[in-house]
């Protein structure tokens, strides 16, 4: 059994090396003394201070955050409402067709989604006689659209797990439908809504391909700035920023991991206590 174990450890190590090699390059070169991303020089932290002065990058970073917050919140509200509506649909054909349409942005290659929305915006822009339609509104529409299926598909299973009669019971006891929804149904599906929101937020933060086609020069997100930079030469302060983001994500994931482990331990204890 032992050599097999060692073999699987080596295998995992190799895969991790493959996955993390470029990240390592990024971190190492963010401390490079020169502006080269190919040859190492002295150790320096100047790119981190340079980052604070790089107004284009910082502007793009704040644009990205604004877009991610607004689009994920809109997607959360629209998507939750949609999931509730889809769940209560009686006609089977209607339900299937709505779900099929919902799936389109998930199955379509991103480039096709991006291009198709760009065509729509350009077409409408031509109808109303405007040539520069692409900007924050079009980005927002696109981001809400590609996030919606993820919100809907994470809320729907929670609705299915919720007892149908709970809402009815509340109404029988005199609760108006809307109050019944907020007091009875919503607490039951909140975990699905939250995970949908988180997913929508991260998808929006990281999206490049769709944004690339529906954005204009007036409002650029970080991935788009990075793209235009990689066409010429990447300044190491972008590596510095990526290193900081990497650390933030790592911290977040480790915290989540610890919390999960604690919750599991508690559950185990509770279980053994019951026995």
């Amino acid at each position: 059994m032992k050599p097999k174990r060692a073999l699987s450890n080596i295998y995992i190590a190799l895969i991790m090396l493959f996955l993390y090699a470029p990240m390592l390059v990024m971190v190492v070169f963010s401390f490079n003394g020169t502006s080269s991303t190919g040859v190492l020089d002295d150790f320096s932290t100047k790119w981190y201070s340079e980052l604070l002065k790089d107004s284009v990058t910082l502007q793009a970073l704040s644009n990205t955050l604004i877009l991610a917050v607004t689009s994920s919140l809109i997607a959360m509200v629209l998507g939750t409402a949609a999931a509730v509506g889809i769940h209560s649909m009686k006609k089977k054909w209607l339900k299937t067709s709505v779900l099929t349409v919902t799936n389109i942005p998930m199955v379509n290659p991103e480039i096709v989604t991006g291009v198709s929305m760009m065509l729509l915006f350009v077409f409408v822009g031509r109808l109303v006689g405007k040539s520069d339609v692409l900007g924050f509104p079009t980005l927002l529409i696109a981001h809400v659209t590609f996030s919606l299926p993820y919100v809907i598909l994470s809320v729907l299973p929670k609705l299915r797990q919720t007892d149908r009669h709970l809402g009815e019971a509340a109404q029988d006891l005199g609760c108006p439908p809307v109050t019944a929804f907020f007091k009875v149904i919503l607490p039951n599906i909140s975990s699905g809504i939250i995970s949908g929101l988180i997913m929508a937020f991260t998808l929006s933060l990281d999206d490049f391909i769709i944004s690339y086609f529906v954005s204009g020069p007036k409002f650029q997100t970080l991935p788009i700035v990075i793209f235009s930079m990689t066409k010429k030469k990447v300044k190491p302060d972008m590596y510095a920023l990526s290193t900081l983001i990497f650390l933030a994500v790592l911290l977040l994931l480790v915290l989540m991991n610890i919390m999960q482990a604690r919750a599991e331990k508690k559950e185990k204890k509770a279980q053994s206590a019951r026995l």
Binding site: I12, M16, L19, Y20, A21, P22, M23, V25, M26, F29, T37, G38, T202, D206, F208, L222, P223, I226, F227, T230, V234, M238, Y239, S242, I245, F246, V249, L250, L253, V254, N257, Q260, A261
Partner: peptide, 26 residues
């Protein structure tokens, strides 16, 4: 399992343009 899962998901949170660009250096 949790740790490995985290390690596999972590790169997905980083911008793929920068990560792909880093491969040029390698």
């Amino acid at each position: 399992q949790r740790t490995l899962m985290m390690l596999i998901m972590l790169p997905m949170w980083m911008n793929f343009l920068i990560r792909t660009y880093s491969w040029i250096t390698i």
